[in-house]
Every structure is written in structure tokens, then in C-alpha cells.
């Protein structure tokens, strides 16, 4: 299998990439290629040109400055192996270690994962739960898009076709924060049949302070489980409160069913994996 023909461009800067995207309206950005190339081989996508970000310096970095800023072309393997992330944002390194397999981790990028917005992707939910935002650079300059506004629908984001996602920023947490991502792995691909990411700050009394819970795999796009968040807010992380929040997690979500898992089963998985994730997060802030 091979893709249809296309022109290949390898710009040396983000500005050059944007000019190429403007000049080639049917072009697509190529990052790690681990969603785009399989789709092109299956002829589900046939872009006239590819603009490969692989030749741009400076998009592959992890920097800490209060919060954490991660370049769009940073691979899962870099996230997985970063000592800085392992101590500051363990949810990121853990999740990276469970995306696909080591070869997918060597090529796939954080920017690609968020820009692709696969409904079963892992990092969409993790970045929603972390309250992250992305920087998008286009012909009219740059703008910041909150993860909450980035995912619009199935494989659709708020990015324009001539905008490059250049970095992802996670704000600094205040005080103690528990965080965990739990997924029901598709046994063949590793994608999330259901994945739940939780980030739970606690106040001085040990009560959840504006917890964020995000679900992937179950709906057309990664989404916040607001019913569970509201139920838990301001309460101590007792077994009972966790169970109640987990039971509410699927409320209001428009669940997908397919040959692998029915909507009803996915609803059940959301409860189970929300509970597991919250229990792990609670243990971290005890």
C-alpha cells in the first residue's frame, strides 16, 4: 500500500511552513506521520502536498518555567523519558509510555495528537484535564487556544488549515495535586476504548478544589465529565465521594457504540476507569 502522489516540502521555519500552507491550499502538515500516513496509505486522505515540520529546529523541547511548555514536535518517547516530567507531571510520562507501542512513541508527536483529535487518542483527555492550552501560529500571527476550545468534533479542531500548532503549555499547579490517567486499551491498537484523565488539586483541608476530569474514546471528541467534576468539588476524597463522582461521570455524554464496545458498555467503563483514576490521584495527595 502506498499513498497517492503528493509534493513534499520540508520548511526550515514555522513562517516558511505557513507560507507553504497558504500557497498550497490542499496541503497537509506532516508531523510524526503516525496518523496521517496510515490514512494516506488507505486513501482516506490524499493531500496534494505535505509540509513536513521535521526540519524545523526548536519544536522539540520540554521547558519548565513555573508551568511546563512542550514543543509540538516533541515525541511520546521524549515525554516518556523526561525526568523533569516524571517528577512534575507524572501523568504525562505515564501516558506517553502507554500510547501504542515503542515505535509509535518514537515517531508520534504531542502536537500531532492534539491537532489530529482522534476520538480515541490519549493526550486529548490528558491535556483537557491538565487545563492546558496550545499556541497556534498562522498568517495573522499567533493565538492561544485553551484545550477546552480546541476539540470541536470528530477529527476536527479549532485550528485553521494554515495554522501550525507550535507548543502546548500546562499551567503550574497550586499546592498539592493528584493526577492519573486510566484507560481500557484496545487490545490490538492500544488506543483508548475508554480513557479517563483526572487532575485533582486539594485545599488545606484535603477537599477537592476545582477537579478536572476528562473522558476520551467514548464520544466523538475528548470531553470534560462536568457532572463528576461538580459532584466532587469541595469534598474530601473519600471512597464514597469518589464512587459517587465515578457514577456520575458519563452523565450528559453522548456515548458512541461500535462493534468493539456498545455505548452502554462504554458508559460502564467510564464509571470504572474514573473510579480507578480518582483513587490513584487521591492516594497521591493523602
Amino acid at each position: 500500500m502506498f499513498p497517492t502522489q503528493f509534493d513534499y516540502h520540508r520548511p526550515g521555519s514555522v513562517q516558511e511552513a505557513i507560507s507553504l500552507l497558504q500557497a498550497n491550499p490542499d496541503a497537509k502538515i506532516l508531523a510524526g506521520g503516525h496518523s496521517l500516513l496510515p490514512a494516506m496509505k488507505l486513501r482516506l486522505a490524499s493531500p496534494a502536498a505535505l509540509v513536513d515540520l521535521g526540519g524545523i529546529d526548536g519544536l522539540r523541547s520540554i521547558s519548565t518555567n513555573g508551568g511546563v511548555t512542550i514543543g509540538a514536535m516533541t515525541t511520546y518517547a521524549q515525554l516518556r523519558d523526561s525526568n523533569e516530567l516524571a517528577s512534575r507531571l507524572p501523568i504525562v510520562s505515564e501516558t506517553a509510555n502507554n500510547v501504542g507501542d515503542p515505535q509509535v512513541q518514537n515517531k508520534g508527536t504531542l502536537g500531532g495528537a492534539l491537532a489530529h483529535a482522534d476520538p480515541a487518542a490519549d493526550f486529548t483527555a490528558v491535556m483537557l484535564a491538565l487545563g492546558a492550552s496550545v499556541k497556534a501560529v498562522g498568517p495573522n500571527g499567533e493565538r492561544t487556544i485553551a484545550a477546552d476550545d480546541l476539540f470541536v468534533d470528530l477529527l476536527t479542531t479549532a485550528l485553521a488549515a494554515d495554522e501550525v500548532l507550535t507548543e502546548v503549555s500546562v499551567p503550574a499547579g497550586q499546592g498539592k495535586v493528584g493526577m492519573a490517567y486510566e484507560k481500557f486499551r484496545h487490545p490490538a491498537s492500544g488506543y483508548a476504548v475508554v480513557g479517563v484523565a483526572v487532575v485533582v488539586p486539594v485545599d488545606g483541608q484535603g477537599n477537592a478544589a476545582s477537579p478536572r476530569i476528562a473522558v476520551t474514546g467514548a464520544t466523538s471528541k475528548a470531553t470534560r465529565a462536568t457532572a463528576a467534576e461538580q459532584g466532587l468539588n469541595g469534598k474530601p476524597l473519600t471512597d464514597q465521594n469518589i464512587a459517587a463522582a465515578a457514577a456520575a461521570a458519563a452523565n450528559g455524554l453522548d456515548l458512541n457504540g461500535d462493534h468493539f464496545a456498545s455505548a452502554e458498555f462504554r458508559g460502564h467503563l467510564i464509571e470504572v476507569f474514573t473510579k480507578r483514576a480518582l483513587e490513584r490521584a487521591a492516594a497521591q495527595v493523602k
Binding site: 513534499y8 520540508r10 506521520g33 515517531k107
Partner: peptide
């Protein structure tokens, strides 16, 4: 290590 069926020669 990479899956060479999912990398372009030009990459």
C-alpha cells in the same frame, strides 16, 4: 526503532 512502512523515504 521505527516502523519503516510508516515513514517516508524522504523523511
Amino acid at each position: 526503532s521505527v516502523k519503516s512502512c510508516t515513514v517516508l523515504a524522504v523523511q
